[in-house]
Write a protein that binds this DNA or RNA. Structure first.
Lengths: 204, 204
DNA sequence: CGGGACATTGACTTACTTCAAAACTCGTGG
DNA sequence: CCACGAGTTTTGAAGTAAGTCAATGTCCCG
């Protein structure tokens, strides 16, 4: 059973859409984005991955990766060859189940993303994004209220279906309302309940 | 090994978000929509399922279903208890692999949906929707050019992140351009290449 | 044949985008 | 150590795609 560690530097690509799918990757340290692209140059960030998150299983079906995975800071990933996983999963049911759960969680989170993209206004999208990020950091033992964004306004915009200017303006608007404090990529969430209220659709 | 068949009439619910996850379902005959909803009444159609499609695996992680599955016409589904599947998958690797592939295909298709929702104009969304539907029907042996929509304009709109009026207007616009012929839920795709051209971003 | 749900179309409004300019951040080299 | 410049973020003003509101048309199903 070979499980190896691999380093990916800031800006480097772990795998590209179209690459042969041979392994999945678990983020050990660092931060990634996943991007889908069309032949005509259209792009969409479909997710951000941090420590513990699994990447690459969207390639199981076709045998080819479906997204580009790009490091947003120097990172280390654990390489999990799919063949090994399949064989091992048969002998160790909990592992099998873990993979199923992880994939099902990814599907749920994609559905959340669709809900954001399909039916929310810019303020609600940004609030949802920040609350979700804050929550994920908290679960990993980091502060839920004080965060440093690893991605640019443009990357946030792509993920949320907004232009970078709109993301920036929305941050400013939420700050003006006293819900948070922004300074470039430093974010302080000063009123999480208020943010949740925005997310729930208050026009306030 | 118990695998049973279940009938779901038009408008009925197969399972609801929050229901205990005990089984997955494969559509035998008929047509379904999957809907996510928030406490505050916001709704989003996340997919449409037809013969052969699997539904419900988004519930594996939490043990609760994550969407409502609602029949858009009288339908029959094959009930696949998850416990059985897990056990059987261990003995029959191809079955295991089939589940993995199906989930990974769902993730890919969700990424496509995010791309549509996040970065396409109404015409491109509608074109993408029709082409994808046409393709799925063709793969099942139906005509790729002549289709009867099972869902309302509102449901299409929810899926595409548009209002029903916009969907209707967009159909009319594409018809005026000679790419298709609409009459209520009857659609004739007269120029699939042209539609694909619209999808690729032609402003024509 | 009539009523209710669904679809189309038009006129007007709005949230977000686009285009443009200024300010901040940070690494590099003079 | 400070100045420069590239990349990013913020902010403003004007434009536009899609939303909203409202009226009319069409199709079933009882």
């Amino acid at each position: 059973m070979v499980i190896s560690l691999r380093t990916v530097l800031h800006g480097e690509t772990l795998f590209r859409a179209g690459d042969r799918f041979e392994a999945m990757f678990q983020v050990w340290t660092g931060f990634f984005k996943a991007v889908v692209a069309t032949s005509r140059g259209r792009e969409q960030v479909t997710g951000f991955q941090m420590a513990g998150d699994l990447m690459g299983f969207e390639g199981i079906d076709s045998g080819l990766h479906g997204v580009d995975a790009i490091a947003l800071e120097d990172s280390q990933v654990c390489v999990i060859p799919y063949a090994n996983l399949e064989a091992l999963g048969r002998e160790v049911p909990p592992l099998q189940r873990h993979l199923h759960r992880t994939m099902s969680r990814e599907i749920l989170s994609d559905h959340d993303a669709m809900l954001r993209l399909g039916s929310m206004h810019s303020e609600q999208r940004v609030a949802a994004f920040l609350l979700s990020l804050s929550d994920r950091l908290r679960k990993r033992g980091f502060s839920a209220s004080s965060l440093v964004l690893r991605m640019s306004r443009e990357e946030i915009g792509s993920y949320l279906g907004l232009k970078l200017e709109t993301v920036s303006r929305t941050f400013s608007k939420l700050q003006a309302r006293g819900l948070l404090f922004v300074r470039q990529r430093q974010i302080q969430i000063t009123d999480p309940a208020g943010l949740r209220h925005v997310l729930d659709g208050a026009t306030v």
